[in-house]
Amino acid sequence: MAGQGSAPRVFDRALLRRRLARAVTAGSEDFLLARAAADAVERLSFVKRDFRSVLDLGSPRPDVAAALAAALPDAAVTRMAPLAGPEPAGRWSRVVGDDERQPFAPGSFDLVVSCLTLQAVNDLPGALVQARRCLKPDGLFLACLFGGDTLKELRTALSVAESEVSGGASPRVAPFSDLRDLGGLLQRAGFALPVTDTEPLVVRYAHPFRLFADLRAMGATNALALRHRGPMRRGVLMRAADVYDERFSDPDGRLRATFDLIWLSGWSPHESQQKPLRPGSAKMSLAAALKPEG
């Protein structure tokens, strides 16, 4: 398994699944995942390709599989679900699996889509390699994950509050990769024609506790392996709410929460794809191209 055994344990994956299970059992909704699913379908609409075998790779809920099944009516859609419990049925088959141990044979799909799950794997390079291997030649990988500016306001508020009240700060919000790092990881994983871009989304709240409630409803609360295991002190929480209000409120009093949605795409290599020119094969030198006429 690529990278397996050597990657640091940043996330408690078992805790992540338990928290997601609680959120799903409670019947809560995930507006960010619904947004990502709709954006994925829109991006695919610009790809002139007939996808027949499609994988929803580990998305937390069925939103992505449902969107893909509706947008690609002739495709056989498979959903790799992170949980074994019941979920709404749809026009897709379901297997239970883990992003870090993907249970598919090489060349199984011509489209793999992943939304808002890969930011919480311990071995992201290995997960990307596995996703590329399960693609057929010239198959497309499309993923959305949280980037480096996600919850930057909350990170600041919690850090300031804990430093003031407790004299030190412990990790409360997961680290997220930036755009350049992720583009490099696509290349390392063997994808051809890699593309990355970001879509910042700012959500506004009447109070920080509404943001906390949404994060719990999405099963997205702190699951860092090195997190502080005790409950957050009330004094820290109240001071964090004050800092949030002081530093990140708009003139109307509502508070900003940034979600940095990074999109990745790449193709499984195939001989028909465009190739970069060999070094030294250019027909004209740069100096000649820049030389003024006359």
Rank of each mutant, 00 (worst) to 15 (best):
V129H: 04
A157V: 05
S285I: 14
A257S: 10
V121K: 12
V112I: 11
W92R: 10
V95L: 14
P292C: 15
Q273L: 14
R132C: 14
A225H: 13
G219R: 06
V165N: 06
A289M: 15
R94G: 07
S272T: 06
L116Y: 00
K48R: 14
G85N: 05
V96A: 13
P73S: 08
L44R: 13
V54R: 09
A67P: 01
P106Q: 04
S268K: 15
P60S: 10
R239H: 07
L44G: 04
E246T: 05
F209P: 07
A241P: 01
A71G: 03
Q119S: 12
V77K: 04
D260C: 13
V113P: 00
S272V: 11
G183D: 03
F11I: 13
M238H: 03
E29M: 08
A127G: 11
D56C: 09
S28M: 05
G126D: 04
L116G: 07
V121G: 12
K136H: 04
Q273N: 04
L145T: 05
A213D: 06
S272I: 09
A217S: 10
L277Q: 09
V173S: 08
F51A: 09
L116E: 01
A288Q: 15
L135Y: 03
N222R: 12
A257V: 03
A26S: 15
P86E: 02
L261G: 03
R43Y: 00
F11E: 02
G168R: 08
F209L: 13
G27M: 05
S265T: 03
G27N: 06
C115N: 14
D250A: 01
A75V: 11
D138Q: 12
G168F: 13
S163K: 12
Q273G: 05
K48V: 08
S265L: 11
M80R: 10
G253Y: 01
W92M: 08
L151P: 01
G107K: 09
A223D: 01
L118V: 06
G167Y: 13
S45Q: 05
D30P: 07
A161I: 12
Q102F: 07
R91P: 03
G139K: 10
